[in-house]
């Protein structure tokens, strides 16, 4: 495991902690897309099917359990917690995320390493993760004022993906010397979707002004 990969996983963990902190301490999920969080639950459940069958390392098992557990916990808070669910931006979170699931599944039926349940769902989870942030980005464009923790959460998600790209560049030259098309192309597209957000986030940080995405 190289440093980029470790930093990437730690950044991913951090952004989930930031989100849980926001929800638990402020009892608010304003500006957070429930649809994106639900897509992440599907991403983790379909990707970690081999959690108990294929042993990689204790690190993998712990991280997978944390990602599945926290993503389900966040959806639970936003859907069922009596106080938090009142703060959900229901009217702005209108992206039809079901329109993302079917195309990713169909693509996985055609593009996969093996035509088995685990492999098709693994590919599906990679394609879905690539587009899962879209409802959240659309919601940010609609939000008049984005609170700092929400902006930080999305920024850290983007940073985790950039670190994974750097991890793949490192592994290509130093380790595997071959291209893993499915995760790398999906991951590249996923990271590219943050470019616009990164620009406005860094601009708002430099100018010390509120984060605002153009509609």
């Amino acid at each position: 495991m190289n440093l980029f990969r470790l930093l990437g996983d730690m950044t991913h963990l951090l952004c989930i902690v930031v989100l849980l902190l926001k929800i638990r301490t402020r009892k608010s999920c304003a500006g957070i897309s429930l649809k994106t969080q639900e897509l992440y639950v599907i991403v983790f459940l379909t990707r970690y099917l081999d959690l108990f069958t294929m042993y990689n390392s204790l690190y993998q098992i712990v991280m997978k359990l944390v990602f599945v557990g926290t993503s389900i916990g966040i959806v639970w808070y936003m859907r069922y917690h009596k106080v938090v669910k009142q703060t959900y931006s229901k009217n702005e979170d209108t992206f039809r995320h079901y329109f993302l699931i079917l195309p990713c599944f169909v693509l996985a039926l055609f593009v996969h390493l093996d035509f088995t349940v685990v492999e098709v769902l693994w590919s599906f989870s990679l394609y879905l993760e690539a587009v899962a942030i879209l409802p959240q980005l659309v919601l940010l464009q609609r939000s008049r004022n984005i609170d700092t923790l929400t902006g930080d959460y999305v920024f850290l998600l983007g940073v985790y993906r950039v670190l994974y790209l750097l991890n793949w560049v490192y592994r290509f030259f130093m380790e595997i010397h071959q291209i893993r098309w499915i995760p790398w192309v999906s991951g590249f597209i996923q990271t590219a979707l943050y470019a616009d957000f990164f620009y406005y986030y860094i601009k708002s940080w430099k100018n010390r002004e509120k984060l605002k995405l153009p509609a």
Partner: peptide, 10 residues
Amino acid sequence: GPSSNPKDEL
């Protein structure tokens, strides 16, 4: 050593 396992990442 370089792991050939394509699922060695999260």
